[in-house]
């Protein structure tokens, strides 16, 4: 797998910036008030941006989870 190292570094930075934005905008009161399963899924989503994994944790469809994350937990999509 031939990789452009410079591009790889740039994207690592972008992912870190995206995580900072999700952390910044998230409604942590809402997240903490959720049942354990949903709370963990939302926290995981804030940290990683992995909507699919988070949706599976929450036992929801991807779009259902992302909608709740956006509308209730105020976590924007950033990537």
């Amino acid at each position: 797998m031939k990789i452009d190292e410079k591009a790889l570094e740039e994207w690592i930075e972008r992912f870190e910036e995206a995580r900072e934005l999700r952390r910044k905008y998230a409604d942590w009161n809402f997240i903490k008030s959720q049942p354990e399963r949903i709370k963990i899924a939302l926290e995981y989503y804030v940290e990683t941006g992995d909507y699919r994994g988070a949706a599976q944790m929450a036992e929801m469809a991807v779009d259902e989870f992302v909608n709740i994350a956006k509308e209730k937990a105020k976590i924007p999509t950033v990537d």
Binding site: I3, D4, E5, A7, L8, W11, R14, F15, A18
Partner: peptide, 10 residues
């Protein structure tokens, strides 16, 4: 992000 990064670095 994973897909966007992939087409940039690979």
């Amino acid at each position: 992000g994973g897909a966007l990064a992939l087409v940039n670095y690979y």
